[in-house]
Design a protein around this nucleic acid. Structure first.
Lengths: 245, 245
DNA sequence: GATCCACGTTGACGCAGATCAAAGCCCCCA
DNA sequence: TGGGGGCTTTGATCTGCGTCAACGTGGATC
């Protein structure tokens, strides 16, 4: 909003969807030059979220979805009795907030795990533009659908896999997503604690820690605190598919 | 298609969205009379699926989503090693197939648990109509979003609850959905086996059976095979919220 | 460079739910 | 009317992960 007052504000210009280096991963995927210009109008506002801060909380009114420009988030859901569960970890180019559309309020918390910046996509406007730009409409539907499929994957994790399989699947998933963003497939820093990993995987932090140590001993990975190096991706994959029916 | 050849074919007329008794639960929700007429054009084809048959299989090309008119389904996902997990049970007025949008093929199996009938909603046409009917667009987005929220609920189930809590949550959820469809909140027949319930809840069938027996002994429900009567819904709810953090 | 504190690791032990096994029930069909 | 097969129940035993506890580690702060 305010940015429009300062025409050609350099940082704003650089941050437009049409110039963003995530445009092949994020909402703009597959849009033509002209359509991208329209998207730039839709996504005007950016918001910084410091490490530890909430982007939104469960029960906040739902008004926008968010595309992560830089940084790393977790989402979690709370039960009345205080127990909670991490439902996902999100990185650059991924969308946050789609859970809120159905009930017009958010149904989970989104917390930055490092200093982050998000693009605010007012939802009513997104619907408006996607009535005009069918490529945008279709791509948005795909992103929602993929979120559903991702959740099925997590259900699989939680429902049928044993502890070490869950952790192996988690590491391979992170590796694959870092790769898609141009980072090393084999070496990265975890942004989350053992406790948060455990919550996501339906395990206690001690179990996560033991599984890391075990992978380390077996030469599958090397772990030092939050720094992970994958030494034997094939070995990790084998853990996933060898189990009894 | 064929039905158009026989004008005013009585069964077809009765089956139109505008006449359907599920229209307040299903896709037509919130549409005006005129918009409903358009929806009737979109949803022309119905399909019967007999008990035990697949509506679609994982890796089938994705072309349409399906609204359940009558009957009961399960969806399940397969792992390479043969293990599988039931990801949901769907009843009349609910939508199947949204998992397929993202990859243009289905990512799970949908199997009828009783003789069923679905309305076929060709997806390209749904996108077309929702560019014109914003109420339809918005409602479709809500349904997808609710699917994501539902999945979060299942993740919670699988990630943090113990066996009896999971079963209690499952029964209360069924009860609530039957109620919304005008059936008894307290008395119903399960369409799925103990094994399928177990797969959904991340438990073995013996554990499900024992939990049923326990609830029966404690007077929370009465079970005879697939017939369930809920005697103490409050007691079941208490099971869910009393646990330690 | 001493202190603090959140986070992580490791060990010992216990238990919820899995596994294995056997028997019961119901419905279908000859 | 009886036999067979799929589903369910129940009991006995096992085990993977949780729980509890103690100690280790690294990074921030003064």
């Amino acid at each position: 909003m305010l940015a429009q007052v300062i025409p050609l504000s350099v940082p704003e210009l650089r941050e437009a969807c049409s110039q963003c280096n995530l445009r092949e991963l994020c909402l703009p995927m597959g849009l033509s030059g002209n359509e991208l210009d329209q998207l730039d109008q839709l996504v005007e506002v950016r918001r910084r979220v410091q490490r530890g801060q909430h982007l939104y909380r469960g029960s906040d009114p739902f008004e926008a979805i968010y595309a992560i420009k830089t940084g790393f988030f977790k989402t979690d859901v709370l039960l009345e009795d205080g127990r909670d569960q991490v439902t996902g970890f999100q990185m650059a180019g991924e969308i946050l907030g789609m859970d809120g559309i159905g009930s017009e309020k958010h149904t989970c918390n989104a917390v930055a795990l490092e200093d982050s910046e998000v693009c605010v996509i007012p939802f009513a406007e997104l619907e408006h533009y996607s009535r005009e730009i069918s490529a945008l409409q279709h791509h948005f539907h795909k992103m929602m659908s993929r979120e559903i499929v991702r959740d099925h994957g997590v259900m699989m994790l939680l429902g049928v896999m044993r502890a070490e399989e869950r952790l192996a699947a988690f590491l391979l998933n992170l590796s694959q997503r870092f790769t898609a963003r141009g980072y090393s497939p084999t070496e990265f820093n975890l942004r989350m604690t053992r406790n948060e990993i455990g919550s996501y995987l339906g395990l206690k932090l001690e179990t996560v820690s033991r599984a890391f140590s075990r992978f380390n001993e077996e030469g599958l990975i090397s772990v030092h605190q939050k720094h992970i190096r994958i030494l034997d991706a094939a070995g990790l994959k084998k853990l996933l598919s060898q189990r009894r029916a």
